[in-house]
Design a protein around this nucleic acid. Structure first.
Lengths: 243, 243
DNA sequence: CGAGAGCTTGAGGCATCTCAACGGTTGTGG
DNA sequence: CCACAACCGTTGAGATGCCTCAAGCTCTCG
């Protein structure tokens, strides 16, 4: 099952996730499936809600407002799950789609419940991952609510770098980034035009370059300082005491 | 156990939550405890992380940025839980505090894990509640990312009304609201000054009034239309098929 | 070879912020 | 019981960060 591996790398810092839990999870996920770039990932089918493990590639969740504007909620990279909340609650008007070509494994509501019943520890590990996603959502909220455009972009790229590094897709401040500028703008609550100017500003100040689908962070400490970035929330400490 | 009741009202639309689950949950919560207004609720103590059921009163979670500005993440009203994510992940720099005098019941990480092991159905019900919180967080993100000040305030108040109505604290567009203007501003990513002007604008347009700690929504349909509010996410449908 | 999407730049407008000031209320200590 | 501090609510005036409208370039894809 090589397709579990980015998730495993991510969960490696979660103590309750061992070989048994790995097995419990893997047997309940659907078989790996390739989905083309830029296609919707329905968060429900005729049998009920569906969540996805993104085994490879990039995806996103978003909402469309009545006036047609879009808010990107989460960017999913290999090892991430999307739609877990929707398993219990229905997706509401939340949507999901692939960005690149993606390999997914499905997780249905029934499988999820079965997993929870079969292995409390595996369930806790998934909950750990879910809680980490919530931390990112909270950071995202702070980003949009209280930071300037320059800070937002810096913070966004540093977070992405940290997450990709955990799963082996980034090193030394460099990573491939298949996101378009309009998409990033919709994630950060900016217009594509202003994002473009902000990227230019960061480039001329020698902090980071985003060109031709590649991000290069040139001065990580300085960029982190001026963006108010502290990556601790990406490497959550497991609480010491668990029964 | 009268103190469980707002939570029960909220969970009443969750099918997996029956008397047995109620019991499983209640025996694992700490005894009701009264906390004074405007005091911090530590999300961890010497034994590890702690979450809280807000049995009565209002509380909030927030983050403080290096420059001293504050972003309010969630407002908790009776029946809500705060800090559930922190049980698995540690609180990060997320903080929680009471707004009014509050009655809480503690939930420790160990109790939480025990609950999950003892009753899958109770665990699922909590997860249902947790997923609903995530929906609200997503709505909050859209609010701040893609809506104007007027829309944000309208949406915020309509959401609050919907949530309070579910637990019996609002009726006919009226509810007591102990939030100060600076606090609401910090929730919506605005300055207190601009929030004040926005409230005045909504008042003069006959949409809603917030004065002396009471919110009166005068024209709910019109306010909902101009705010892009659709309360469906507050009343999540349970997926039909669960094993 | 045309259409659509993304990237880039310019110019002007406006929503929101910043700075400043004042009155009312509450709580507190002398 | 009074004086004072602290916080909240309110309004004015001016500054600015980000948006809107507009246009041209490049690249990909059909």
């Amino acid at each position: 099952m090589p397709f579990l591996s980015p998730l495993e790398r991510k969960l490696s810092s979660c103590k309750t996730f061992g070989p048994a839990e790995r097995e419990a999870l893997s047997t309940r996920l659907g078989r790996p499936r390739v989905v083309a770039a830029r296609t919707e990932l329905p968060l429900a089918d005729e049998n009920g809600p569906v969540a996805y493990l993104i085994a490879d590639g990039w995806a996103l969740t978003y909402k469309i407002l009545p006036d047609g504007t879009r808010q990107v909620i989460e960017i999913a990279v290999p090892g991430d799950m999307i739609g877990v909340g929707a398993l219990r609650v229905g997706s509401g008007d939340l949507m999901a789609a692939t960005i690149t070509t993606v390999t997914v494994r499905d997780l249905t509501a029934a499988s999820f419940e079965a997993l929870l019943g079969a292995s409390v520890r595996a369930g806790m590990a998934l909950l750990w991952s879910y809680a980490r996603d919530e931390s990112m959502l909270v950071e995202h909220l702070v980003d949009i609510g209280r930071r300037t455009a320059t800070e937002r972009v810096g913070h966004f790229m540093l977070e992405l770098h940290g997450r990709l590094e955990q799963v082996g897709f980034a090193r030394d401040g460099r990573f491939k980034c298949p996101l378009s500028q309009p998409l990033i703008a919709d994630a950060l609550g900016l217009t594509a035009i202003h994002l473009n100017r902000t990227l230019r500003d960061l480039r001329t100040r020698g902090l980071m370059i985003f060109r031709a689908g590649v991000v290069e962070i040139l001065d990580m400490p300085r960029l982190a300082r001026q963006s108010g970035f502290d990556g601790a929330y990406l490497h959550p400490a497991e609480p010491a005491a668990t029964a």
